[in-house]
């Protein structure tokens, strides 16, 4: 088939041409787009489900949900770009005897108003959706609970120490009672560190002379790792420790074994109170 014939055929098979849908460029691009979209959405479900660590708080669940939701929104757009790019490479690629001779000029298209407007409108709508999602999730995370367990976190080159006000307990491992809101008051004594208990889905920098606050509610028992996420010098890589989400009875015991008086431990662990903690679901 000569190039002219090929061009003619392409022209005949434009989006609204007479041939069956799936043999027209638009149809083929639609199929490629569909395949890419499905792949993207599958990745969007697979990656958080199999690659993310098991999240132990609702905030961690938000991370999971955000990745899935954003991927589902973004996949069709990315897939469209890929579909057109791939299709152009395979269908409209010009092969000639002499590679130094350029193909004849294509039909000029200096722009397409409706397409641009639709593209802009769609991307604006997507951005607004992303924004509303983000703001909704973020403001839900900002709610502070009056009886939250207070934990003071101190970053130091290259170790975290935790103290539980009212109990006199100071440790280097972070134990938390399950389903009890907790507020971390994070600070540093030297440089900026990043307090990052990854599976709790929260992160904030430990800044010298400033106390920054994050809140979460661990809702799943099990051990986790706290890392430093802000390069803090020589042993940055070693600045991590384990944490553990335990039941309030275990937490009570743990506090006492670390030197708290039984009353103080019970108050801090919430085992003696009315148990008005908000369990935010599992």
């Amino acid at each position: 088939m000569s190039f002219e014939e090929e061009v003619d055929e392409i022209e005949a098979n434009t989006l609204l041409g007479g041939a069956p849908f799936f043999s027209r460029p638009g149809g083929k691009i639609f199929i490629i787009w569909l395949v890419f979209t499905v792949i993207g959405v599958l990745i969007g479900f697979y990656a958080p489900h199999h690659l993310l660590p098991v999240m132990q708080s609702p905030e961690g669940g938000d991370v999971w949900a955000t990745i899935v939701f954003f991927t589902v929104l973004a996949a069709p757009v990315a897939a469209l770009v890929y579909a057109i790019a791939f299709y152009s490479l395979f269908a409209w690629r010009h092969r000639s005897e002499d590679p130094d001779v350029p193909p004849p000029d294509a039909e000029p298209q200096r722009g397409n108003g409706p397409v641009t407007v639709v593209w802009l409108a769609v991307s604006t709508v997507l951005v607004v959706v992303l924004l509303f999602w983000g703001i909704a999730v973020w403001s839900a995370q900002q709610v502070s609970h009056p009886n939250a367990l207070q934990v003071n976190v101190t970053g130091q080159q290259w170790l975290w120490t935790y103290s539980y006000p009212g109990t006199g307990v100071e440790t280097r491992t972070l134990d938390l009672p399950v389903n009890r809101p907790v507020q971390f008051n994070v600070t540093s004594v030297d440089v900026t560190h990043g307090f990052w208990p990854a599976v709790l889905g929260v992160q904030v920098d430990a800044n010298p002379d400033v106390v920054t606050v994050i809140r979460t509610t661990p809702n799943k028992l099990g051990k986790f790792i706290v890392q430093c996420s802000q390069l803090c010098g020589l042993y940055h890589a070693f600045m991590n420790n384990t944490g553990d989400v335990v039941t309030s009875q275990q937490f009570d015991t743990w506090l006492q074994s670390n030197g708290a008086t039984p009353t103080a431990a019970a108050t801090a662990a919430g085992t003696s109170s009315s148990g008005s903690t908000t369990a935010m679901g599992k």
């Binding site: 080159q157 004594v189 030297d190 440089v191 010298p208 010098g233 020589l234």
Partner: peptide
């Protein structure tokens, strides 16, 4: 700063 430079950082 905070006496953590020099020998502590090296």
């Amino acid at each position: 700063v905070a006496s953590f430079g020099g020998v502590m950082g090296a």
